[in-house]
Nucleic acid binder design. Structure first.
Length: 410
RNA sequence: GCCGGGGUAGGGUAGCGGUUAUCCUGUGGCCCUGUGGAGGCUACGAUUCGAGUUCGAUUCUCGAUCCCGGCCCCA
């Protein structure tokens, strides 16, 4: 009877872990070079933090629990809300903009499928304090740069919700939300039915249906013909001009909505090939959440990268230093330990821990894909030297440990 | 929550009503305490779980569970 790993979780073997850490470090390097700072928030939070943001409906998809003090808690399902909470709790007095990032595991009680797990990792960025196009553009460009750095060619779709919201501003808030959700899900038939049912002005109906279908290079011009010279369209254009300057490749897509009320301006999504139904690897936008959590009226913009999905399509291989394996006799075991300690500041070193014979040790070195074997027998020990064997060529030479170190550094 | 396809040693597999459950690989030991990738010998190791049908189930039926894919959802 063995205990199996919980559903929707994964064990990462050494080879997997090496790849993941490698990609993670590349992403970290890029985001740091853009001036963002890493933060860590708790693995669990008050349940209320997430119901406040996303509604009571999400509880069914949470790993929530009551703790021993009768508090309603949950493992975090995402990190935007925790970061906003952290900001409200202890960073409001800092000068803006704040440029933060995180790389953490999240938990959702959902049915696992390709690219979807119950424990998954998100790499995210939040830029707090600016609602300018410059901030939006920096965030999109950074996302694009990060994906490029790990060799992923994504399809980036961008939109500015100001335009559609301007169009809908004559409607009630409730109606606007419902429409945004339908647009997000691309349920265009249901959308038309709803518009008919609520007796929306026919002018608005026509414009809306046409607007959300606009994509591609001339979409802005077409939108201008539909809605006129509104300031939201000018803001959208400003963003696109910046993106062009960043040399980001994008597709204008008035159909991207994100069905949540706190998305107000820029929104974007990135899709990658080869992921089946879960092809979105990145999603983000500018939003207003801080007020909801009891802070000031501070605008933010950010995105989350689905790290597991990135790993699914990412093919970059980490390079690793080939280890050195010390091969010793029963009589020179202690010499092997001393030599290992001298070499370990420079390379990964293995010594025999199984009391194996000479041949088996060499065979093990071969299995470990060692670059070199360092052989220490009675003869070498007596001479105060070691035999350095190149495992590739098979050549070997008698050297002092210092000479070995010098040689390994080359 | 719903719909498909699956589950045999650590990995990959054969058997499809009665087998000592097949083979490959792996791992440990030995051949072999001074030179690796090979070989030989040997040991280890599996029918996902539960119920039913049957004289007898790895094999058939049902349920559960887990895996793979899809729907819903996706903050």
């Amino acid at each position: 009877m063995t205990i199996s790993r919980p559903r929707g979780t994964r064990d990462f073997l050494p080879e997997d872990t090496r790849c993941r850490r490698n990609v993670e470090n590349i992403l970290r390097r890029v985001v740091r070079n853009w001036g963002f700072q890493e933060i860590i928030t708790p693995t669990f939070e008050s349940l209320e933090l997430f119901t406040m943001k996303s509604g009571e409906g999400i509880v069914g998809e949470l790993y929530n629990f009551t703790d021993k003090g009768d508090r309603e808690m949950t493992l975090r399902p995402e990190l935007t809300a925790p970061v906003m909470r952290m900001y409200v709790n202890e960073m409001q007095a800092r000068q803006r903009p704040l440029k933060l990032f995180y790389f953490e595991n999240c938990f959702r009680y959902e049915r696992p499928q390709k690219g979807r797990f119950r424990e998954f990792w998100q790499f995210g960025v939040e830029l707090i304090g600016s609602d300018k196009a410059d901030a939006d553009a920096e965030v999109i460009a950074l996302a694009s740069e990060m994906l490029k750095a790990v060799g992923i060619r994504g399809d980036l779709h961008v939109n500015h919700l100001g335009v559609i919201r301007h169009l809908l501003s004559v409607l009630e808030t409730e109606q606007q939300s419902r429409i945004m959700r339908l647009v997000d899900k691309k349920e265009y038939q249901a959308l038309e039915d709803y518009l008919a049912e609520m007796n929306a002005p026919s002018d608005l109906r026509m414009k809306l249906i046409e607007l959300i279908d606009l994509t591609g290079n001339d979409a802005i011009e077409k939108a201008r013909m539909l809605v006129g010279d509104i300031p939201e369209l000018a803001a959208y254009q400003e963003l696109l001009t910046l993106l062009d300057t960043y040399r980001v490749e994008y597709t204008i897509d008035f159909g991207i909505a994100r069905g949540l009320d706190y998305y107000t301006g820029m929104v974007f999504e990135v899709y990658a090939e080869g992921l089946g139904a879960q092809k979105q690897v990145c999603g983000g936008g500018s939003y207003q959440l801080i007020k909801l959590f009891g802070g000031g009226d501070v605008p933010s913009t950010g995105f989350g990268l689905g790290f597991d999905r990135i790993m699914e399509v990412c093919t970059i291989e980490p390079e690793e230093a080939k280890p050195v394996v010390i091969i010793a006799m029963e009589s020179t075991r202690l010499e092997a330990v001393k030599t290992a300690m001298q070499l370990r500041p420079h390379v990964p070193v293995h010594i025999d821990l199984m009391k194996r014979n000479f041949k088996a040790q060499l065979s093990y070195a071969n299995y470990l894909e060692a670059g070199y074997a360092v052989i220490i027998g009675d003869k070498e020990a007596a001479a105060g030297k070691v035999m350095l064997k190149d495992m590739q060529s098979g050549e070997q030479e008698l050297l002092t440990v210092e000479e070995v170190i010098r040689k390994l550094r080359v």
